[in-house]
């Protein structure tokens, strides 16, 4: 114990004072920023409606239940359409994403200063714009129907798949590439034998995950006329047929859960 008593009194502070002040200041900043945003956001809010919400909720639930089960026969075809939108959209999306990913990855791009920025911009643009907005545009351009939905899903998926894919390409192990190049293989052969086998598991995993998200997204594309079960949702909402609405929502919920389980299962089996 002798060591302890002889040591002089020391002061411990877990952070420097400046950093401490910065900590308090940032909390204050976040709080006041929140208040400011809250004020701006709610300036047009009618609080009467908000206070009325519990009554409205009770009323809505009252009108929704029981669901109109017999309506389900009319929903099967739209549900099938929804699955097709998601699957074909994903398929087109990954077909487009594949070359874009190779153009965007800095180790495979043909030109770092010209092609790569364009590819990256396509990825950012595709990721920034929700599939519903794509659908809104495409319905205005091509008219309502499945086709607009499929292209909307495809355009939204390109960015997601290409982003993860080009990151995977940039992370590939370089030894096999060097080994193959030293044997005199051409660029295409190097890609085929050294790069693609390395990124294939990522590619399949990403595609399946995207398919699962796309099922979720394609269920609502019908709201803007792009086909699938969302069309029925829109139709039921416009006539305030709440027992049908709740049935559709339940069906969507079950479909989403099942597709998530399915995609996770296949991904685990493959990877």
């Amino acid at each position: 114990m002798a060591h302890l008593e002889t040591s002089a009194k020391k002061v411990w502070q877990q952070r420097m004072t400046f950093k401490r002040w910065m900590g308090w200041f940032s909390w204050l900043f976040i709080l006041s920023f929140f208040m400011l945003c809250w004020q701006a956001m709610t300036q047009n809010t009618l609080w009467v409606f908000v206070l009325d919400a519990p009554t409205q909720a009770a009323d809505l639930i009252d009108r929704m239940f029981p669901p109109r089960w017999s309506y389900i026969t009319a929903l099967l075809k739209p549900l099938w359409d929804t699955l097709n939108i998601a699957t074909l959209g994903t398929l087109f999306g990954i077909i487009l994403a594949f070359p874009i990913a190779f153009l965007a990855a800095h180790n495979t791009t043909p030109s770092r200063f010209f092609v790569r920025p364009i590819a990256l911009f396509i990825i950012v643009a595709s990721r920034s714009i929700n599939s519903l907005i794509w659908a809104l545009l495409l319905v205005a351009i091509f008219g309502p129907g499945l086709f607009a939905g499929i292209i909307a899903i495809a355009l939204r998926s390109v960015g997601f798949v290409a982003k993860l894919l080009y990151e995977a390409i940039e992370e590939v192990d370089k030894t096999p590439i060097k080994a193959l190049t030293s044997t005199g293989a051409s660029a295409v052969q190097v890609m085929d034998y050294a790069i693609i086998p390395q990124i294939l598991p990522t590619f399949i995993g990403v595609s399946l995950f995207r398919w699962d998200i796309n099922i979720r997204e394609s269920t609502i594309l019908g709201l803007v006329g792009a086909g699938g079960i969302g069309l029925e949702l829109q139709a039921s909402l416009s006539v305030l047929a709440w027992p049908q609405v709740i049935l559709i929502v339940l069906l969507i919920f079950i479909t989403v859960i099942l597709s998530e389980a399915f995609s996770a299962k296949i991904r685990n089996a493959i990877i």
Binding site: H3, L4, S7, K9, K10, W12
Partner: peptide, 9 residues
């Protein structure tokens, strides 16, 4: 705190 400093020493 003082004890902790002692143990570190």
């Amino acid at each position: 705190l003082q004890k902790a400093f002692g143990y570190l020493e």
